[in-house]
Write a protein that binds this DNA or RNA. Structure first.
Lengths: 143, 143
DNA sequence: TATTTTAGTTATCAAATGATAAGTGAAGAG
DNA sequence: CTCTTCACTTATCATTTGATAACTAAAATA
């Protein structure tokens, strides 16, 4: 296997992924929040469990002061709730409020419908190929 | 095939792609340019042929005035060159200068070495699985 | 030839983001 | 009981980015 060719394939692949992701998600986000705030909400959504500001800071590559600022704004918009840990009172847990959850549900529903639309004419075999390919790449390359 | 399950798989897959991409490219970009400027240079690099400001504007989802501003900055940094079309003198073609090309080469070399590092312990069979999976997804999902 | 459209520019403004210094209060270590 | 570290906050500032209006010059079209 030519690893250099594989690298080039990877480059154009990731470009496609970015472009398709943009296409499926554009204008799906409520315009009451900024892109960074959306990313934060998304990461809270996907991590089922409540998540701490430090974790958000890490996985979003945001400094703690900036994370804190954005969480405050999200809180003021009533999209998230902060709970302090009963054991370690320095820590906080962030979760979506009902309003935040409703908003993210709506966004995801729209993105999902666009996704389904995109694969509506895909044959059953192709869908299974895609499914397997996603598994392969997730486990062997994008881990 | 459960298309809803496939959607969820797609969501976590794209999240992984973004995260790995970030990991491989972080600090690879020269800090004399901004993220948006890097994206522009990248798109000039990958499109082998010279590219017009309008095309950059389209594929980067940037307005023309902002595209123009950033191209001007890149030009002032001697990273790109503008050539005007001899037939239609409204049009311009943008290409990397020698300096810009050198800079992008260096960045790509670093990213490539990180990529090779990441797959260095991957078996030949797995590499071929990855290669096929990239082809499948590129042609059937991220087209 | 007069009018409209196209490709790109300039200027300006507001908002979003990134970076840094300094502070709070709680937990942990000696 | 002090000192240090940890998790997070507040304040502030510079830079980047996005949006808009008004402009130039060159096609294209009527």
């Amino acid at each position: 296997m030519d690893k250099y060719a594989l690298f080039n394939k990877w480059v154009s692949f990731t470009a496609s992924v970015h472009s398709v992701t943009h296409e499926l998600t554009k204008d799906a986000k409520s315009d009451s929040i900024t892109p960074v705030q959306y990313n934060i909400l998304e990461s809270i959504t996907v991590s089922q469990k409540p998540i701490t500001p430090s974790e958000i800071s890490d996985c979003q590559h945001l400094s703690m002061p900036n994370t804190s600022r954005e969480l405050k704004k999200l809180s003021e918009k009533n999209l998230i709730e902060k709970l302090s840990d009963t054991k370690d009172r320095r820590k906080q847990y962030i979760r979506l409020s009902n309003e935040g959850e409703a908003m993210m549900n709506e966004t995801f529903k729209l993105v999902e419908s666009r996704f389904l639309n995109r694969i509506q004419h895909t044959s059953e075999e192709d869908l299974e190929d895609i499914d397997r390919a996603l598994d392969v790449l997730q486990s062997k390359l994008f881990y």
